[in-house]
Simulated assay, not measured.
Amino acid sequence: MDFLINLMPVVVVFAIFWFLFIRPQKQKQQEHKEMLSKLEVGDRVVTIGGIKGVITVVEEEELKLEVAPEVEIGISRRAVGRKDNENTDITEN
C-alpha cells in the first residue's frame, strides 16, 4: 500500500507533463503533417529556412517554388514550414 502512495506523485507529474507538453506537441505535428499532404499549386509557403514562394509544381516528395519572377527552386515537401497567408506578390520587388 505504501508503494502505491509513494508512486502517486510520479503518476501525477507524468499526467501533468502529458497534458501540458506531450499531447499538444503531438497534435501540432499531426496538423503540420496534414498541411503538408494538402499542399497544391498556387499555395504560398514559407520554408523552414525562411524562403517564401509560390508552389508551381507538386510531386510526391518534392515541390517547385517560384521565389522570384521566372526563378524556381526545388525543395523537399518536408522543408515547408508553413503556409504564408500574406497577400504579397513575389513580383513586387
Rank of each mutant, 00 (worst) to 15 (best):
D2H: 10
L7V: 15
L7A: 11
V12D: 02
V12R: 00
V12P: 04
F14K: 04
F17N: 03
W18M: 05
W18Y: 09
W18V: 02
L20H: 02
R23D: 09
Q25M: 14
K26Q: 03
Q27P: 03
Q27E: 07
Q29E: 12
Q30Y: 04
E31A: 15
H32V: 14
H32E: 06
E34R: 13
M35V: 04
M35G: 07
M35S: 02
L36C: 11
S37I: 00
L39S: 08
V41K: 05
G42E: 07
G42H: 04
D43N: 13
V45K: 04
I48P: 10
G49K: 10
K52I: 13
K52C: 14
K52L: 13
V54A: 05
I55T: 04
T56P: 04
T56A: 07
V58N: 08
V58S: 11
E59S: 12
E66V: 04
E66H: 06
E66C: 01
V67W: 06
E70N: 08
E72S: 01
E72W: 13
I73G: 05
I73P: 03
S76N: 13
R77P: 10
R77C: 07
R77L: 06
A79R: 10
V80H: 09
K83E: 14
K83P: 06
N85V: 15
E86P: 06
I90P: 06
T91K: 11
E92H: 06
